[in-house]
Computed example of a mutant assay.
Amino acid sequence: MNPAELLPVAVEATTVAAELVRTRFPGTLTAKGDRDMASEVDFAVERAVRDLLRERTPGIGLLGEEEGGPALDGELTWVLDPVDGTVNFVHGLPLCAVSLALVRRRRPVLGVVEMPFLGSRYQAVEGAGAYADGRRLRASAATTLAEAVVAVGDYAVGADADLLNRERLAVTAALVPRVQRIRMLGTAATDLAWVAGGRLDALVMLANNPWDTAAGVVLAREAGALVVDRYGAEHDTASNETLAGPRSLLDEIRALIRAVRADFTE
């Protein structure tokens, strides 16, 4: 099946999801671990999208953040983050997104990122370009970190957070004197969509899940950005980290990460 044929279905699903996010209060929060939670809206969105996609594409399973699903090594699988940026949503911050991707054998081939409170929809199909509200997207052409606005992923919570954050804080500290500005938005889907659109020059995220990144990876790639893990390998749904941006910036960023890791292993 050509993934482009399923783009209207994906847009329909994220439109339904975004309306739920816009019109409902977070409600009761369900703890998922140390300082991590899901809202009633997370569950409501995932169930609504799951029901719609089951009806429209009955032969394709769905992996959702809240209720799980099939492995991602099959022919086609939907991957959903119902509210990417739940903490922002719960606190009334408008930076959150619905992220829906179609994955073929661990490689995202279609992505839609809908930002309910910003009124923006980003969409891409592999080989067909990336668009936001009808406008073709082009990633940044920055060549030096000194001219780059670089987003960093959230710091860790939960088990081993202190240990994990030592490296993440050290990477941030290495970036700060070299980049134009650092930003932490709290929503990976928005980070990647804005890398695709050139609002952010690069993204450094040292941990992720497939629902965090799958849709955004398609957007960034189709807009001309490179998306790899910390070792420079092509990103897929099994990747543990996400680096996105122009190759020249990622070469510098990967060198900084290697230097930080070397300091920790001495």
Rank of each mutant, 00 (worst) to 15 (best):
V83L: 10
R181D: 15
A244D: 05
W194H: 10
G85I: 00
V171F: 07
T213W: 07
E167H: 09
L29A: 14
G232Y: 11
D133P: 01
V113F: 07
V90Q: 12
M1K: 11
K32F: 03
A196R: 12
V218K: 10
V218A: 14
A18L: 00
L249D: 04
V45H: 10
T242P: 02
V87E: 13
R199C: 09
T15R: 15
I60M: 08
L72F: 10
P70S: 13
W78A: 03
T144H: 10
L76N: 04
V113L: 09
D42V: 01
L20N: 04
A161H: 12
T14C: 08
W194A: 00
A174V: 03
V11L: 15
A10P: 01
I257R: 03
V79T: 12
G186F: 09
A173C: 03
R47T: 09
Q123W: 10
D73M: 11
L164W: 08
V125A: 03
T237P: 04
L102E: 05
A18C: 13
D81Y: 00
P82T: 14
P177Y: 13
N165T: 12
A31M: 12
G59P: 03
A13E: 02
V157E: 07
V49F: 03
A189D: 02
E66Y: 10
R261T: 04
L93Q: 11
A262I: 02
E126C: 00
H91G: 11
D229E: 07
G33E: 00
M115I: 01
M115E: 11
L219K: 12
A139I: 02
A161R: 15
G127I: 05
D229I: 04
R24P: 00
T144G: 10
N88M: 07
T28K: 14
R22P: 02
L137E: 08
E167Y: 05
A97G: 08
A48V: 01
A128F: 09
M205V: 13
D34V: 09
Y155L: 15
G198V: 11
R166M: 08
S99P: 02
A48Q: 05
L118W: 07
G158K: 11
I60G: 07
V16Y: 00
P116N: 04
A161G: 06
T144I: 01
G232C: 08
E55I: 06
A202Q: 01
T187A: 15
A220G: 09
V195L: 12
E222H: 11
V41P: 03
G111R: 04
V217A: 15
S99Y: 10
P8N: 11
P58T: 13
S39E: 07
M184I: 11
V125W: 02
G64P: 04
D229Y: 08
T30R: 13
L53R: 08
L118F: 08
L29E: 13
D36T: 15
D191R: 01
A124W: 11
D212A: 08
R136Q: 12
A18P: 00
L6D: 03
D263H: 12
T86E: 12
